[in-house]
Amino acid sequence: MTSPTNRSVDTGAPDGPDDHVCSAKGCRAPARHAVIWRNPTLHVEGRRKVWLACDDHRQSLADFVALRGFLIEVVGVEDLTDADG
């Protein structure tokens, strides 16, 4: 399973989805998906953490957080909001 790096997403930046890079360790591919998750023991209700994913790592990153019960949803990078991150 691919482990992610700690990259944060600044959804308020003027750059578009093509400027986002996959969060999987060692991957520099353009991110097309956002894996949104929350660890309820660490994060307050309503907090949404985001890992970005390319097409190749979308499933492995989602599976990684889903296995721990942290997965909220997977959306397209273009669907991220200010509440994400």
Rank of each mutant, 00 (worst) to 15 (best):
H20Q: 01
D56V: 12
S60E: 09
V9I: 12
V50E: 00
D55L: 09
D56I: 09
L42C: 15
V77N: 02
A83Q: 11
T81Y: 01
V9H: 01
D56S: 11
A29M: 13
W51K: 03
R48A: 01
G69Y: 08
V75H: 02
T41M: 08
R28V: 15
P14M: 10
L42S: 14
T11P: 08
F70N: 09
G12K: 11
F64M: 13
W37F: 10
C27I: 07
S3E: 13
V74L: 08
V77G: 05
H57V: 05
S60M: 09
G12I: 11
P40C: 10
C27F: 04
N6F: 15
D15L: 12
W51Q: 03
N6V: 15
A83T: 14
A34Y: 06
K25M: 14
N39P: 10
W51C: 06
R48T: 06
K49Q: 13
V74C: 10
T41Y: 00
D56W: 03
V50I: 02
A24D: 01
A29F: 09
V75S: 06
V65H: 01
E73D: 13
F70Q: 10
H57M: 09
N39C: 11
D84Y: 02
S3L: 10
D18S: 12
Q59A: 13
G76D: 12
S23W: 04
L71K: 01
I36L: 11
P14T: 12
G16W: 00
N6E: 14
D18F: 04
H20F: 00
D82W: 09
R7L: 05
A29T: 13
G69L: 11
R28A: 15
L52D: 06
V44K: 00
V35L: 03
K25D: 15
D84F: 07
L42E: 13
N6I: 15
A13V: 12
G26Y: 05
D10H: 12
M1G: 15
D15H: 12
D63W: 04
M1A: 15
R47E: 15
A13F: 03
G26E: 05
D18A: 14
T2Q: 07
P4Q: 02
E45R: 00
A13E: 13
V77P: 05
H20L: 07
S8K: 03
S60K: 05
V35I: 09
R7N: 10
W37V: 07
D79F: 08
L61T: 01
A62T: 03
H43M: 04
G69I: 10
T5L: 12
D15P: 15
V21T: 09
L71F: 03
R47H: 15
R28Y: 05
Q59S: 13
K49C: 14
P4L: 01
P4R: 01
V75I: 10
N6P: 15
V21F: 07
H33E: 03
V50L: 05
P30G: 09
V50C: 08
D82I: 13
D84A: 12
A53N: 06
G26C: 05
